[in-house]
Nucleic acid binder design. Structure first.
Length: 775
DNA sequence: TCCGAGCCACTTTTT
DNA sequence: GTGGCTCGGA
C-alpha cells in the first residue's frame, strides 16, 4: 500500500476503527472469513480491486462488505450502488445480505443488474434524451424487427442485409458507448455499403418515435445524460457513497464509462472479478477493464483471494494447468487444503449418443451410491448439444432441469400475450400492435397493415391512431374495417378495465376475449398444450405484481421466471449459464475441435477468441467440487450430417498428472479411418498423418494401451468383426442396406468386406460390411 | 387472406 | 434435423 496517498490513510483509519466495538473482529459478518476476505470487507474507502479466483468465497466477502457498510452506518441502503450482470446474482447478494443484517437489506434499491439500475435512472430523466418516462424496453427480437423495418425503409435488399445483423452491429456500438454521431466514419462500411451509420441514426429515430429503448440504450442514454447534464450527475454523486461491481471482468466500454462517471467523486468503488473467467468478449466485454484498473484508479488497493474452498487439488491442478496456456492474464495461484481427490477423468466415445449414454449411466451409478441428482450437472458449450442428453435422460427416467434453454419470456406465446398487455398500457406501441393485430387471425393481413402504415407515416401518428382514422374513411374494405373496429374497441375497453383490475385479471381477460387462448385450444399443433400452460404460468406470474407497469418492466429485464428450486433434478446448462455455480459432480461433454473451442468463434476473432474459449473451459472445470468428467466424441452430427471430430486441444493442455484418460479403444481405428478418409467431407483435415499426429489422439491412443496401431473395432459395436480379416461380404452389389449413420443406401461395389454404398442422403461412401444391416 | 409445399440457412455463448 | 421464409393455389 502507498504511504503518501490520502486514500490509503483514510482506508487505514477505517481499518483501525473497525477493530473496536460493534464493528470489531467479532462482528457477525466477519465470522469465518480468512485474512484476505476480511481485508476486502474492512478496506471500505477508496478504490479496491478484489481479484477473486473461482471458488474463493467472493460472494461471501462481497456481501459481508455490504453488510458492514450498512451495519456501521457508513451508508444508508439507498446510498449504495451495487451492480451485477444477472438477476440471479443480484438476488443472491440481496438474500445473503438480508441473512447477515436483516430486513434493512430490502432498502438496497440500487442493487441490481446494470440494465435494471440504468433503466431506473433513465425513467427519472427520460425527457433529457427525448423519451417519455413511460418508455418501453424492447428485447432483441423487437430490435431485429425494428432494424428490419429501417432497412426496408432505406430501400435495401432485406435478404442481403438482415435486421438481425444490423441489430448486432448497433449493439456493438452501444457496447462501446457510441451514439450515431460518435461512430467513426470508416465503420459505416461494416454494413449496407457504407450506410451503416445512417441506418443506426434512422433506427434511433424510430425508437424515439416509438418511445422505446433497447437494452444498449439503457446505458448509453445514461451516459448521454451524465455527460450533458452535470447537475444530474452531481445528484448521483451525492447519492451514491459506495459503489460495488460484481464480475468486473465482464464489463463493456459503456458500463466502464458509466461506472467511472459515477465513481469519480467518491472514488469508493470496489470492483470484484476474475480475469480468468471473462467469457463475454463476444458481447463487448473488455478484459482490459480489469487489467488496467490500477491505472484508472491510482492508489487502488488490490486484494487477491486465492484460497479455494470449492474443489479438490486435482481439479484445481487441471484447471490451473489449462488456463496457464493463456498469455493475457493478471495471474493467480489458487490453492486449497482439501484432500487430493479423484483425478479429472477424460473419456473418448464414439458419438454424442454414446456420450449421453455414458454420462447417463454415470449419473445412475452416482445416484445409486446416494448422490442427489441436483448435485450433478452437465455443462455444454452450445445449447444444441443438450438434446442428446435430454433424450437419454428421458429414456432412463432421470429427472433433469434445463437452465437457460428457450427462455420463458422469449417464447412466442408469452411474447404475444405480453404484446397485448403492452398495447393495453400504451396504445401507441406499434411493435406490439403489429404483433397481435392479426393474432388470432382476424382477416387483417399484410394488406390492411400496409394501409395503416401508409396512413401512420403520412400523418405522423401511431398505428393505433391510424387504425382509428381509417375507420372514418374507405381506405379499408368493409370486412377489414369491421374487424379492425372490433380490435381497436377491445383494446380500448381493456385499457379502461385495467384501471381497476390487477395485472393478472387484465391478462386473463384480454387473452380470453381476444380469442388468443382459443386460438391455441383449437390448434392442432403438438406444442399447443405446452403453450396454454405457459399462458397460465404468465397469468400466475403477473399475479405477483400490483401494477401492469411494474409487471411489464420486470418482464423486460428479467428473462426467467423465478423458479422454485427442486432438489431432485440433474442440471443441464451451457457453460456460460454455469458461471458462479458449483456442483459436486460436473460433466463436461463435447470437448472436440470445432465444438469446443468453437469453430465459429475462432473464425471470428482468432487468437483472442481462443483465449476466451480456454477461459470458458476453465470456468467449466472449476465448477466441480469433487469430480470432473470431461468427454469427447469421435463422430458428431452437424446439420444432420455425420462428421468425424478430433479431441479438443484443451484436452492436451491438461496437465498429465491431474487427469486420467480412459478412452474407448477403436475410436479412431481402421473402420473410422476408412470412411473418414473416403468421405466427401473434411478430407484434408483427416489426412492420416495429420490425424494421428494430433496430440489428443496420441493421448487417447496411449491410454488405450494397445500400442501404435489403431485397435480394430469399437467396443460394443460390431465387435465380432475384424476389419483386417479377409473374407466375403454378406452383401452383393445392388443390395439395399442400412447404416447407423448414413441411413439407407444401395451397394455399388464389393471388395472383400469393404463395400461402396450409394446412400440415399449422404452420397457414395466406402464402408465396412460390419457397419451395415440388410434393409 | 390463408395455408401448405418446398427451399433455405442455420447452431455459440445473453442482459 | 429444424425452423423460418417465400411462393403458388384455394
Amino acid at each position: 500500500m502507498t504511504s503518501d496517498s490520502s486514500i490509503s490513510q483514510r482506508a487505514m483509519a477505517g481499518f483501525a476503527e473497525s477493530r473496536g466495538g460493534f464493528d470489531g473482529a467479532d462482528a457477525p459478518y466477519l465470522d469465518g472469513l480468512n485474512a484476505e476476505q476480511r481485508e476486502a470487507v474492512l478496506w471500505t474507502e477508496g478504490p479496491v480491486l478484489m481479484l477473486a479466483g473461482a471458488g474463493t468465497g467472493k460472494t461471501r466477502a462481497l456481501t459481508a462488505r455490504l453488510a458492514r457498510l450498512l451495519a456501521t452506518g457508513r451508508a444508508r441502503p439507498w446510498q449504495i450502488l451495487a451492480v451485477t450482470f444477472t438477476n440471479k446474482a443480484a438476488r443472491e447478494i440481496k438474500d445473503r445480505v438480508a441473512r447477515l443484517i436483516g430486513p434493512a437489506a430490502e432498502g438496497l434499491q440500487w442493487l441490481g443488474t446494470f440494465h435494471s439500475v440504468s433503466a431506473q435512472i433513465l425513467r427519472r430523466h427520460a425527457p433529457l434524451v427525448g423519451l417519455k418516462s413511460t418508455f418501453a424496453i424492447i428485447d432483441a427480437d423487437d430490435q431485429a424487427r425494428l432494424a428490419k423495418q429501417v432497412i426496408e425503409a432505406e430501400g435495401l435488399d432485406e435478404k442481403r442485409w438482415s435486421g438481425r445483423m444490423l441489430g448486432f452491429l448497433i449493439d456493438g456500438w452501444k457496447n462501446r458507448g457510441l451514439t450515431p454521431d460518435k461512430v467513426p466514419q470508416d465503420e459505416a462500411w461494416r454494413f449496407a455499403e457504407g450506410r451503416a451509420i445512417k441506418l443506426y441514426a434512422a433506427y434511433q429515430a424510430r425508437l424515439t418515435t416509438l418511445n422505446a429503448a433497447d437494452f444498449g440504450d439503457l446505458l448509453v442514454h445514461n451516459l448521454t445524460i451524465f455527460q450533458k447534464h452535470a447537475d444530474v450527475l452531481e445528484e448521483y454523486h451525492q447519492r451514491f457513497r459506495y459503489l460495488l461491481v460484481d464480475e468486473y471482468q465482464d464489463t463493456n466500454v459503456a458500463q466502464y464509462l458509466w461506472l467511472r462517471l459515477l465513481a469519480q467523486k467518491s472514488r469508493n468503488i470496489c470492483c470484484v472479478g476474475d480475469d480468468d473467467q471473462s467469457i463475454y468478449g463476444w458481447r463487448g466485454a473488455e478484459v482490459e477493464n480489469i487489467l488496467k484498473f490500477e491505472k484508472d484508479f491510482p492508489g487502488a488497493k488490490v486484494i487477491r483471494l486465492e484460497r479455494n474452498y470449492r474443489s479438490t487439488p486435482a481439479i484445481l491442478a487441471a484447471a490451473s494447468g489449462l488456463i496457464s496456456a493463456n498469455a493475457q492474464r493478471l495471474g493467480k495461484t489458487l490453492w486449497t487444503d482439501r484432500a487430493e481427490g479423484d483425478k479429472v477423468k477424460v473419456r473418448g466415445v464414439w458419438d454424442a449418443e454414446e456420450e449421453a449414454r455414458l454420462i447417463g449411466d454415470d449419473i445412475e451409478a452416482e445416484q445409486a451410491r446416494g448422490r442427489a441428482l441436483s448435485d450433478m450437472a452437465v455443462l455444454v458449450r452450445a445449447a444444441f448439444q443438450m438434446r442428446a442428453f435430454e433424450d437419454r435422460f428421458n429414456t432412463l427416467g432421470i429427472a433433469y432441469r434445463v437452465v437457460g434453454g428457450p427462455r420463458f419470456y422469449e417464447r412466442e406465446e408469452t411474447r404475444d400475450a405480453l404484446a397485448y398487455l403492452r398495447l393495453i398500457r400504451n396504445g401507441d406501441d406499434d411493435l406490439s400492435f403489429e404483433r397481435v393485430v392479426n393474432k388470432p387471425k382476424r382477416g387483417l393481413g399484410d394488406k390492411a397493415l400496409q394501409t395503416l402504415h401508409v396512413i401512420a407515416r403520412a400523418r405522423g401518428v401511431s398505428l393505433m391512431t391510424a387504425a382509428k382514422l381509417s375507420l372514418e374513411t374507405d381506405d379499408l374494405g368493409g370486412a377489414a374495417k369491421k374487424a379492425l373496429a372490433q380490435f381497436v374497441g377491445a383494446i380500448e375497453r381493456w385499457a379502461r378495465d385495467a384501471k381497476d383490475m390487477t395485472p393478472a385479471e387484465i391478462a386473463e381477460l384480454a387473452l380470453e376475449e381476444s380469442g388468443y387462448v382459443d386460438m391455441w385450444k383449437t390448434s392442432k399443433s403438438a406444442q399447443a398444450d405446452g403453450k396454454l400452460d405457459n399462458l397460465k404460468e404468465l397469468v400466475r406470474a403477473a399475479s405477483e405484481f400490483d401494477t401492469l407497469e411494474g409487471y411489464l418492466d420486470h418482464v423486460a429485464l428479467v428473462s426467467e421466471l423465478t423458479e422454485a428450486s427442486e432438489s431432485g433434478q440433474v442440471w443441464l446448462m451451457t457453460l456460460h449459464a454455469a458461471k458462479g455455480l458449483e456442483f459436486p459432480v460436473v460433466f463436461l461433454p463435447g470437448w472436440e475441435e470445432g465444438i469446443f473451442p468453437s469453430q465459429r468463434s475462432l473464425e471470428e476473432k482468432g487468437a483472442a477468441a481462443l483465449e476466451e474459449e480456454r477461459r470458458l473451459a476453465y470456468v467449466g472445470i472449476t465448477r466441480a467440487e469433487e469430480s470432473c468428467r470431461i468427454s469427447f466424441a469421435a463422430n458428431r452430427q452437424v446439420y444432420g450430417r455425420w462428421q468425424a471430430a478430433m479431441p479438443s486441444r484443451f484436452i492436451d493442455e491438461l496437465p498429465e498428472d491431474a487427469v486420467d484418460v480412459v478412452s474407448q479403444p477403436g475410436l479412431y481405428g481402421a473402420a473410422a479411418k476408412t470412411f473418414a478418409s473416403h468421405s466427401s467431407f473434411d478430407g484434408a483435415k483427416l489426412k492420416d498423418d495429420a490425424y494421428y499426429d494430433n496430440p489428443g489422439w496420441r493421448r487417447a491412443r496411449a491410454a488405450s494401451g494397445r500400442g501404435p496401431s489403431p485397435p480394430p473395432m469399437i467396443e460394443g459395436r460390431a465387435s465380432s468383426v475384424s476389419v483386417s480379416a479377409p473374407g466375403r461380404s454378406r452383401f452383393a452389389v445392388g443390395a439395399r442396406v442400412f447404416h447407423q449413420k448414413f441411413g439407407y443406401g444401395r451397394i455399388t461395389a464389393v471388395e472383400g468386406q469393404k463395400l461402396t454404398v450409394d446412400f440415399d442422403h449422404s452420397g457414395e461412401k466406402k464402408v465396412v460390411d460390419a457397419f451395415l444391416e440388410a434393409a
